[in-house]
Design a binder for these strands. Structure first.
Lengths: 189, 189
DNA sequence: GCATCATACTCAAGAAAATGATTAGTCATA
DNA sequence: TATGACTAATCATTTTCTTGAGTATGATGC
């Protein structure tokens, strides 16, 4: 029971199809949860059966028909209950960290490459989130928006996503530099 | 095939029993992976069957007997292959973020409480990791240790863990402040 | 002297998540 | 005019993770 609340949370801002949701889970929602399209479709089906979301068919001419979902009162109640319950702690879980842990014992070359790829992926995400934040707050500056903005939830989670990506990028670059220097030092011996 | 590599990575630094590993997964290893004891025991059994780790029985007088495991050559090879393969991107996945996303739509009181609990849990973790880092680098300062230290892998992953916890704490405190101020502003209206 | 904690591990069941394959029309582009 | 990307989804399977219970002994604290 975990993805379900992320879906409800994402759906709170309007009507979305499974497909649109899966796009949202690639960008904004990715700051607090991640899921593949198949998971979303499955979850939406379950949520609809339980009456927590409701969908309506939208017939389209040039595109396949779609079903738009919105949160029902029962869904909202479920979210409220969830928000009041204790949260599970959050964990880091990252292949690349596992590799760094053993990088000095096995080959470092490939790990360095991957760190650099990650760093530039993080850089791209940082820019994307920067734009998203600017868009969300409109004309106001951040302080102002956070004080009086109507809908700050998505902004707040984006802030966390941004900080996470920045931390990730900085770490990747630092570790790359460290491993690089050790490589040349090793070579000299 | 993910926990398996975290276990191999953790086991690379010496012999550990399942129980000891589960302790390591609460502290240092938690910086790159998380798992419950049951998962570890199960994974060790699998890894042993596949010949990637080997265990030996240690008979103890005052404590229950235990099995100490170490990585075999095949296990090392598996790790090397893993390190060379592409990594899956890392995701945030956090109940609390889901709650913040909807905090301005549903009740904020409980979310604020949870943010504060998280902040102090992060604070505790920060101290713990600070000590761990000091212990790992011994007398040397960080730059020096990273240049010439023998085993920097665990240090590097701890650095990421530390930065993550700091980012998490800062975010929690900031959001707490924002939500608090909005509460009082709302009340005045 | 009783309770609780720490060591050390096992088993089973169930929920959640990831993976892979498939369908089918539209649109842009090379 | 083939190629691939985009919209919109479904189905089946497998892997992974979580939850909960249980066993047994010694040490520590009040």
């Amino acid at each position: 029971m975990a993805l379900r609340h992320a879906v409800l949370a994402a759906l709170l801002d309007g009507e979305y199809s499974g497909y649109q949701l899966s796009k949202a889970f690639d960008i904004g929602v990715a700051n607090f949860w991640h899921a593949l399209p198949q998971q979303l479709y499955a979850e939406l089906t379950k949520l609809e059966k339980e009456g927590l979301v409701a969908g309506r068919q939208v017939v389209q001419e040039t595109r396949p028909n779609k079903r738009l979902f919105h949160v029902t009162d029962a869904g909202r109640a479920e979210l409220e209950q969830f928000a009041a319950a204790v949260s599970k702690p959050s964990f880091i879980r990252d292949d690349l960290l596992v590799k760094v842990q053993v990088a000095d014992r096995i080959g470092t070359a490939s790990v360095i490459e991957q760190l650099e790829e990650r760093a530039s992926a993080a850089e791209a995400k940082i820019e994307l989130l920067g734009n998203l934040l600017r868009q969300l707050r409109g004309d106001a500056d951040e302080e102002e928006f956070l004080r009086r903005g109507a809908r700050i939830g998505p902004y707040l989670t984006c802030l966390r996503g941004l900080a996470f990506e920045q931390g990730h990028r900085d770490w990747c670059l630092r570790i790359t530099a460290v491993l690089r220097e050790r490589q040349t030092t090793d070579a000299k011996r």
